[in-house]
Design a protein around this nucleic acid. Structure first.
Lengths: 140, 140
DNA sequence: TTGCGTGCAAAGGTTTTGCATGGCA
DNA sequence: TGCCATGCAAAACCTTTGCACGCAA
């Protein structure tokens, strides 16, 4: 769709800088716009969408939609996210909405299994596990 | 939100019948509406949304948004989907869009691990693994 | 008869697109 | 200077809501 970026514009630079400053956070397009609006440096919403798309294409930013509801979330994952060195998984509680980050070596087994037995190269950063967190499971 | 259903209306009956007729398929609200439009039996879009919501609440239908893009998909999973006997997982290729159904007992281990070590009750039916299918991985 | 279900129309929220202008290399 | 990037406005989409009417039990 959007493959290559050629120019380093002010907007692109500031967007990347912002994403780098909030590692592990899930940022929406609106978050980005508000941040810059509050800082005096406006960036058009359309531009944010387009630059984020590019960063996703380039593989340095990750996009997910939590539970298929609401706006998409973005997260900077770095230049070598395709190297499975940072296999952080996400669990999302479908009841209370809590998002849990898991950095668990055990789960890497899934990745290996999917690859070896099903020929599927899992991208952990893009995958969200849905279910119930312990609190909500107790309450059910 | 919408908890209990009381009435068995024509619309509800036909919707369920339709879902039962396409097991394993991922149906959108639009698919449902079109199907009935072509059959002379119209069902209002709003009603489809509302009945599907109820069926999801009741646990007999499953909802997902593939890759956070486009409309939500629904699939009939039956009355005892909460019993983990039918742990079908889905893998979605982020490149070609292919959707792969996996019925693999090995993957049940994930479920157990998440529960025992992280207190998280995974709902396999709602979870989609993202990554690359073998064809696309080869091409990269 | 009661109150849930239906469906139209409208609103709401997110994302995309067209197009003229701006700015990097 | 040549293109890509920007950003406004508008359109496109998907989904939800308000409200009057219909209908199952």
């Amino acid at each position: 769709m959007n493959r290559k970026t050629q120019y380093m514009t002010r907007q692109r630079e500031q967007l990347i800088e912002f994403l780098l400053a909030v590692p592990g956070k899930h940022i929406t397009v609106n978050d980005v716009c508000e941040h810059f609006r509050n800082n005096g440096d406006e960036i058009g919403q359309t531009t944010v969408y387009r630059q984020l798309d590019k960063l996703v294409d380039e593989g340095v930013v990750n996009k997910y939609t939590l539970d298929g509801v609401g706006p998409a979330c973005f997260e900077y994952v770095g230049k070598d996210s395709h190297v499975a060195k940072n296999s952080c998984f996400h669990c999302k509680c479908v009841r209370c909405g809590r998002l849990i980050h898991l950095q668990c070596s055990e789960l890497d087994g899934i990745q290996r299994h999917l690859y070896e037995h099903h020929g599927f190269s899992l991208n952990p950063m893009r995958t969200v596990f849905y279910g119930l967190c312990s609190d909500c499971a107790e309450r059910e």
